[in-house]
Design a binder for these strands. Structure first.
Length: 576
DNA sequence: AAAAAAC
């Protein structure tokens, strides 16, 4: 409390103890608004003893129902689509029986987590990390490192995925954000590397034995940290690949002593092409954020890495919270006799995240809305997503100029050092408001984040799911606010369905929006937009105006409002 | 659909 009073006077540093132990803080005094700045002290959110992520799965609602309804409404003329959907759902529920995944007595976590497995000879999941010692001879040190970092009970993806990887099978794993996917692949890999009784023999060759690919440097860095935690007390060498380490590793003697390389794809490709790195002894390859890694821009790089991994007995695994059909197909092509594990519902955020959609009319109305939001109590640190680097920078500047404390900014246009510093400040709890791009959207695990704001509308369902997945991690609650403007109309419904699917509510009129067909979306753009505008005006407009009026305006803001009304007028004209 | 990120 004292720390926050200090803070409210402005300028003072965030109390570093603040995020050291979340639990400690959570048990403290009830939430109080700190004078003026609206910073809220959390009071709830004790870690639940068991991470029951999927309560909603027991009684399927939301999307399933919405899908059916949708099919009913839109299926006229093409009933086969509804039929296909229904069959798919049945197939999924059959999968688990076919593969003898286990009964509830065997695996108490099963029912809760609604896991579906597909593939031949699916290994049984385990219930306690200790089980792994006997079943797979996982080194005791690894297990004690686990408990040291208070990993007590395996999450769904860990219970199901780890045995698969320990049996050296290929795996495609889909599990929601913040459910411990990193550990699910790191632990078995490190076990295999260190265990003398592993299914594959290590005497074959020298050089890097495991490679983990991630889409951003920050994520690679974070994975490396996890790796170090697990490896503590053992001689494993895990290397975070960067320019610096790449040149060190060009020395073959050094290289041969490295077990695990964690890297972004292009960095690795560069080293391979320079002849400074050989991957012919790689026996474990993981694509983290797999769907992202299989995006067209990354795909060729990833393929090059895969091609360089010539070891015949290589195990490959892909992990993500989202896996669109296209990416899944690609992944399945890369994997050999794979098992596919899906925890929860695909492409769905956790119900722990309370999501809202907020109408803000147009771009110019966003800043006033955000400032209003920040003038009320909120839970720091706050993560704000924008669509471009320049917008990230300028929004951060605006916030600072409007007197918001401890604003930070992070995008890939910044130098490595700037990026590293921003992440450290975030980890230390010194940032209250972090404005960022997609670079932070995936994988990043900041335990303190309880609120995410999509200042700019996400460009895909996947992006949405990952962005808001920065909160609500490891069983904690989270909050996500998404601004939408008239222009976002065509994509609104898709996101709205995601909200529904994960147990958040959506205004009726959004659900009634017609679903724009792919082909017609372009030409219909105008019409759709008009629909949205009208519907939005009825419900959201007044709120938006009220909000704007509530803000005592600085000159800057008044200018903004003027510009905004001008724009509105122009748009109204052009609509006609 | 479209930007970001990767070196």
């Amino acid at each position: 409390m004292e720390a926050f009073q200090l803070l409210s006077r402005g300028g003072a540093r965030f109390d570093k103890q603040r995020f050291k132990s979340d639990v400690q803080i959570f048990n403290k005094a009830p939430a109080r608004d700190v004078k003026g700045k609206g910073v809220l002290i959390p009071h709830d959110a004790q870690l639940p003893p068991e991470l029951d992520f999927f309560k909603y799965a027991k009684a399927p609602t939301g999307k399933r129902k919405a899908e059916d309804k949708e099919s009913d409404v839109h299926a006229e003329g093409k009933p086969e689509r509804a039929e296909r959907k229904r069959r798919k759902i049945e197939d999924e529920s059959l999968d688990s029986d076919d593969n003898h995944i286990g009964t509830e007595e065997d695996i108490p976590t099963m029912q809760k987590h609604r896991v579906t497995a597909k593939g031949s000879d699916v290994p049984k999941p385990f219930t306690s990390f200790e089980d792994l010692r006997e079943r797979y001879h996982v080194p005791p040190l690894l297990l004690s490192n686990l408990s040291e970092h208070s990993y007590k009970h395996p999450t769904g993806i860990q219970a199901h995925g780890i045995p698969i990887l320990l049996e050296h099978r290929d795996l495609a794993a889909v599990s929601p954000t913040g459910t411990g996917k990193t550990l699910a692949y790191l632990m078995p890999i490190m076990s295999a590397l260190g265990s003398p009784i592993s299914s594959m023999k290590n005497e074959g060759g020298r050089g890097v034995r495991a490679v983990i690919l991630a889409p951003t440097r920050e994520l690679a860095h974070q994975i490396h940290n996890e790796c170090l935690k697990l490896a503590a007390g053992r001689k494993w060498r895990a290397v975070l690949f960067s320019k610096a380490t790449a040149s060190t590793l060009s020395d073959k003697n050094v290289r041969d002593k490295v077990d695990i390389v964690i890297s972004t794809p292009l960095r690795l490709v560069a080293s391979i092409q320079e002849g400074n790195l050989e991957l012919n002894n790689v026996q474990h390859l993981v694509l983290d954020e797999a769907d992202r890694m299989l995006d067209p821009e990354f795909l060729s790089q990833v393929q090059e890495v895969i091609a360089a991994c010539t070891h015949p007995n290589i195990q490959k695994a892909v992990f993500s919270a989202t896996l669109p059909a296209g990416a899944e197909k690609l992944a399945m092509g890369i994997l050999r006799n794979p098992i596919r594990i899906i925890v929860g519902l695909k492409d769905t955020p956790l119900p722990l995240i309370a999501q809202t959609l907020t109408y803000v009319a147009d771009d110019a109305s966003k800043l006033p809305s955000l400032l209003t939001y920040l003038s009320q109590p909120y839970n720091p640190p706050l993560l704000i997503f924008t669509s471009t680097q320049p917008r990230t920078t300028s929004l951060a500047e605006e916030l600072i100029m409007n007197g918001i404390s401890n604003v930070d900014c992070l995008h890939a246009g910044m130098t490595k050092k700037e990026r590293d510093d921003a992440v450290s400040r975030m980890r230390r709890g010194e940032s209250w408001v972090m404005v960022t791009t997609e670079v932070m959207a995936r994988g990043m695990d900041f335990k303190g984040i309880r609120e995410v704001i999509n200042y700019d509308f996400p460009t895909s369902v996947q992006s949405y799911v990952h962005r808001i997945g920065r909160t609500g991690r490891a069983g904690r609650e989270g909050k996500a606010v998404t601004y939408f403007t008239d222009e976002d109309g065509p994509f609104l419904k898709a996101i709205a369905n995601v909200l529904l699917q994960s147990g958040s509510s959506v205004p009726e009129w959004i659900l009634k929006l017609p679903k724009p067909s792919k082909m017609k979306r372009k030409q219909m753009g105008k019409v759709k937009r008009a629909d949205t505008v009208n519907a939005a005006r009825k419900i959201g407009r007044n709120d938006a105006i009220k909000k704007r009026d509530m803000i005592a305006g600085s000159k800057r803001r008044k200018e903004k409002e003027l510009r905004e009304t001008d724009k509105n007028r122009e748009e109204e004209k052009s609509d006609k």
